[in-house]
């Protein structure tokens, strides 16, 4: 089995780092989609099957919080698990994100071990399947 994963971040560097970290972590990936803001991310989610979305908060055009709000308003996307990858450390903001259904919050920089654990936590232990 493999997972289709979407990475939404305005930094090409971070998209590459997450992509590489997923591969190093041994996460079985199918399609790896990339978007540079929330609006592009929503379009990819609507056009393709996505199992998991990694998203930044602070992005131009549409930020991560706005993207999640749009997902919640769309019955096709409301259940799609989102993991936030950000530099921000405000407890208040993190709590707000969890209230909006975010499944996990990762603070940059991330490691393969952290990614592996969060994917297993959100999508189930793929090693046992």
């Amino acid at each position: 089995m493999s997972f289709n994963i979407l990475i939404v971040d305005d930094s090409r560097t971070i998209r590459s780092v997450i992509r590489k970290t997923l591969l190093i972590a041994g996460v079985p990936t199918g399609e790896l989609y990339e978007a540079s803001n929330g609006l592009e991310g929503l379009q990819i989610m609507k056009d393709n099957w996505v199992d998991l979305c990694f998203a930044d908060i602070n992005m131009p055009v549409m930020n991560g919080i706005e993207m999640i709000e749009q997902m919640l308003a769309d019955h096709m996307l409301e259940k799609l698990p989102v993991v936030i990858v950000s530099t921000e450390g405000s407890k208040t903001r993190i709590e707000e994100l969890f209230r909006k259904g975010v499944r996990a919050y990762l603070r940059k920089p991330i490691t393969p071990e952290i990614i592996r654990n969060v994917v297993k936590e959100v999508l189930g232990d793929y090693d046992e399947k």
Binding site: T87, E88, S90, K91, K108
Partner: peptide, 24 residues
């Protein structure tokens, strides 16, 4: 830019705490 972004995020928490919401 990403390096600065990471520095800033950590700096904000270190200087002003985790309870305030600051937009970057």
């Amino acid at each position: 830019k990403e390096l600065l972004n990471t520095i800033t995020g950590r700096l904000i928490t270190s200087l002003f705490g985790e309870d305030v919401v600051i937009n970057l």
